[in-house]
Each structure stands twice: as C-alpha cells, then as structure tokens.
Amino acid sequence: MALHLPSEIVVERFLPTARAMLATELHERGLTQQEIADRLGVTQAAVSKYVSGDPNLEPRLAEDARMQRTVERIAEGFTTGEMDDYEALSELLALVREYEDRGPICELHEEAMPELQGLGCDLCVRGQDGAVLAEQQVLESVRKAARMVADTPAVVDHIPNVGMNIGMALPDASDPLEVAAIPGRIHDLRGRVNVPSNPEFGASEHVARAILTAMAADPTRRAAVNLATSDELLDSARERGVEPLEFDAAYEDREAHLAELFEETGGVPRVIYHEGDFGIEPITYVFGETAVDAAEFVVEVVGE
C-alpha cells in the first residue's frame, strides 16, 4: 500500500492548479509577471510558465465550476484592491474543505490510495471513529474474499447465470445500504472468475437481504456468498459435515419465509439452497461470520 495524505493532494495537485489559473486570470487583467509573482508568492519564472499556455493543470480541478468561480473572484478582488491576501486564503481554504468532502480532492486521494475506495473518504471527513473502522473492516473482508474466489479456478463452474456476489453487513445493519458487496456482481469471463470492481456499500440487493434476514435470527451470520445450486456442491457440503437447508424459491415474501424457517431450525445453517422455479435460477447461499469466512468454505466445497 502506498501511503498518501490528503494534504499531499492539496500541495501537489490543487495548489499548482489554483496558482496557474490565478496567474492566467491576473495576466489577462493586465498585471505584470513580477506583480503576479509577488502576489502569489512564487518566482517570476514560475509565473512565466503558468501563463505560457502549458501550466500542467489538474483537469478535474481546473474544469470544476467552483474552482473557476473562486479563481475569478480572487483575481477580480486582487485587481480592484477589494480583496486582500487573508481573504483570498480564506476563499481557497473553504474550497479545499469542500473538495475534501467527497469532492475532486477525495477522488484524487482514492486514486492515489485505492484502499480508500468505497469509503467516500470518510476517514478524512469523519476521522478514525468506530463507525469508520467498522466500515473499513467490512470492506477489507469482502475484498479479501473476492480475491480468494478469483484465485480459485474451480469457482467459475459454480457461478450462477445471474452472477455471483459476496456480501458482508455492518454489525448492526438493518438496510441493504449497510451491506458491502461487489458492484456489478462476479461473473464467468471466458472461463475465469471476473471481479469487476472493489466492494461498496449498497451494491447488492438479493444477497444483502439474505444476510439481513439471517442476522435477525443469528447476529453472527453477517456475510454470504451466492452460488449456482448443484448436486455436486450440496454433496460436497454434506461431506464436510454441513447439511444444506432447502427453502422456497419464490421471491414473494421470501424474507418472511426464511425468517420462519430459521426460527423452526433454531438458527441459520451454513448452507441454504433452492431448486429454482419458473424464471428463477437455482441458487445456494453460503453464510459466514465474515466474508472471508464464507469464501473459505466456498473454496473448500468447490475444491481445487
């Protein structure tokens, strides 16, 4: 992991772009290069580069309307004398704070540190509180689980036509938005397991609802993986001491039926499945305490 602080993005991407845009605006308003240099705290040579037409701007910042308005406002204030350095600094700092709250700086930070993707840069905005740590742990577990299934070629034979997903819920989740999964689902791509992107909260509906129903009966069952139902898969689970539980394939009131089934059995089995119905593909769910726990069992039952 390459460690990058958000302040590095500000120094290396935001500040040069803001200075170049300001230099250009002030140049167009008739200020000399030395006057601009004195105002911006840079050398005359730097200003010359800024206004030469090749300032190496960060496009996502330079093309943002908020940046353009702020630069024009500061340039106009400097030119007319209605804005001093303190007020200009205040304008730029306000823009930085806005950009760090799920804005362009946040996007650039996520690109520099892919581990932040899916968190919306909450670590920067909210700090390292318990909620953020819980989200990080869930996302990391789903990421590891996805790598595990992607590295197991045999999994590809058990991916449903509708796609496979790996989900894990926050400890007190009550809504699919509090369950992390793989956006776009996992698919068979020319004979290999294709994980299209990093996990995000709210990326699943069916797997998420299965997890939430399971959690209502057993709060430790916070994760699940869906697979295509097959005799091979179910027999492999039985060989490992796990008796799969069959449930009704119908979508109507599925959660209520599952809740009743879990109550009758006194808990949530490791594996549940249905044999499909008209227009409904046979699906098996493997539950776990974490996404990694569920994926480990999937890798075990599908074999190498």
Rank of each mutant, 00 (worst) to 15 (best):
G130W: 12
G103A: 09
Q33C: 00
R73T: 11
A150D: 00
E232P: 02
G118T: 04
E135S: 13
I283E: 15
S90Q: 14
R238C: 06
Q68N: 06
E25M: 00
A249V: 04
R69W: 06
L258E: 02
D122H: 02
L22V: 04
R147S: 14
P114Y: 06
P6Y: 13
P282N: 06
N161R: 10
R238W: 07
A94R: 12
D218V: 12
I280V: 15
M83D: 05
T220K: 11
A217L: 05
L234G: 07
D151C: 03
L234S: 10
E255D: 14
V138G: 04
H257G: 08
E63Y: 09
S7A: 14
R29C: 06
M1V: 02
E246T: 01
R222I: 04
M21E: 05
R73V: 01
A203E: 12
D85N: 08
Q68D: 14
M164P: 06
R192S: 11
N194T: 11
E252F: 05
D293K: 06
E300Y: 06
I74T: 02
V47N: 02
A23M: 01
D84I: 10
T229K: 08
T80M: 10
A134I: 05
L227D: 04
E205T: 12
R254W: 15
D157Y: 13
N226K: 07
A291I: 05
P219M: 05
P219G: 12
R39T: 15
G202Q: 01
H158E: 09
D85S: 09
I280L: 14
L22P: 03
G241N: 12
A131E: 11
I186E: 08
E35D: 07
H4P: 00
V207E: 02
L15C: 02
A214R: 03
G130S: 13
N194Q: 15
P199Y: 11
I280H: 08
V268T: 11
S230E: 09
G41H: 08
E243T: 01
Q136E: 14
H4R: 05
G120F: 02
G202V: 07
G118F: 09
H206T: 09
V142G: 12
G191S: 11
D175Q: 01
A150S: 04
T290W: 02
I74P: 02
T229F: 06
P183Y: 07
T213W: 03
E8Y: 10
L40E: 03
A180P: 01
P55I: 15
V301I: 13
H257S: 11
G30E: 01
A208N: 13
M67T: 06
D38S: 06
V195W: 10
P269T: 04
H27R: 08
E91K: 13
A2Y: 01
